[in-house]
Design a protein around this nucleic acid. Structure first.
Lengths: 104, 104
DNA sequence: GAATAATATGTCTAAACTGACATATCATTA
DNA sequence: TAATGATATGTCAGTTTAGACATATTATTC
C-alpha cells in the first residue's frame, strides 16, 4: 500500500487492531480499508460529476454535509453500509458498484 | 424481483419504508436488498465449500453461530458491513467480491 | 483582503448493529 | 424414535454508527 494512501488513512482515524502487514493491518483489514477508499473516491467523483456541493448532495441522499465530508474522507466513523447506501442513493447500479470495487 | 426472493425477504424482516416498486421498495432500496442477497448467498456458499458448520465458521471469523445464521438468511438486523467483513474474513478477494456483486 | 461559499473536524444523542446466550426447529443416523 | 448435530429465531446489553449542530479551515470571488 502506498505512502500517500496510508497518510490519508491515519488522518481518517485508522489505527489497525490487527497483526500482519504494514501499519498492523491484516489482509482482511487491508481489503476492507481498500474497499472503503474505492467507495469513498467513487462517491466524491459522482458528487462532483453531478456538480453538487456536499450540502446539496447530502440533502439529496437525506444525510448531512458533515457526514458527506466524512464519507469522502473515508473517516473511520463511516460504515461501508453508509457508503454503499449513499452510492445507491446517488443512482449507481449494482454493475457500477461492482466495477468500482474491482477497478484499478 | 421474483416471488421466492420476496418471501425470503419478508421472512428476514424486510418491510420497506420507500415509495416505489414492488413491496414498496425504491430502486435504491431494491439495489441494497439485492446486494445483501448476493453477499449472503456467497457467504453461505463459501462456508459450505469450506465444509464448516455455522458454529465452526463463526469461530473462524470471530462471530457467533446465530449471527452467521442471520447473515446467511439476509436478516434485516445484519449490516452490509458485517457481510463484507465476514467475506473478507473468510479469505475472499476484492476481485471476487466484485464478481459476487455483478454476477447473475 | 474581506466577504462568501465550500469543506473539514469535533461532539452529542438516538438509533442501529453486534456477539452472546437460550431455546426452538429441522436433519441425520443409530 | 431417540439421540445427536446443525441451523433458525428471539432477546438483550454493550458498542458502533447516524444525522445534526457548532465551529474551524480552506477556496473562490468580488
Amino acid at each position: 500500500m502506498e505512502k500517500e494512501k496510508l497518510e490519508r488513512l491515519s488522518k481518517a482515524g485508522w489505527k489497525a487492531a490487527g497483526t500482519e502487514e504494514f501499519l498492523g493491518l491484516s489482509s482482511a483489514e487491508a481489503a476492507l480499508v481498500e474497499l472503503r477508499l474505492r467507495l469513498s473516491d467513487k462517491l466524491k467523483q459522482r458528487r462532483r460529476t453531478m456538480k453538487l456541493s456536499q450540502t446539496a448532495f447530502a440533502k439529496s441522499i437525506r444525510s448531512s454535509q458533515s457526514r458527506v465530508a466524512k464519507m469522502e474522507a473515508s473517516d473511520s466513523t463511516v460504515s461501508i453500509d453508509l457508503l454503499i447506501r449513499s452510492l445507491f442513493g446517488s443512482g449507481i447500479t449494482l454493475q457500477e458498484l461492482s466495477e468500482t470495487i474491482s477497478d484499478r
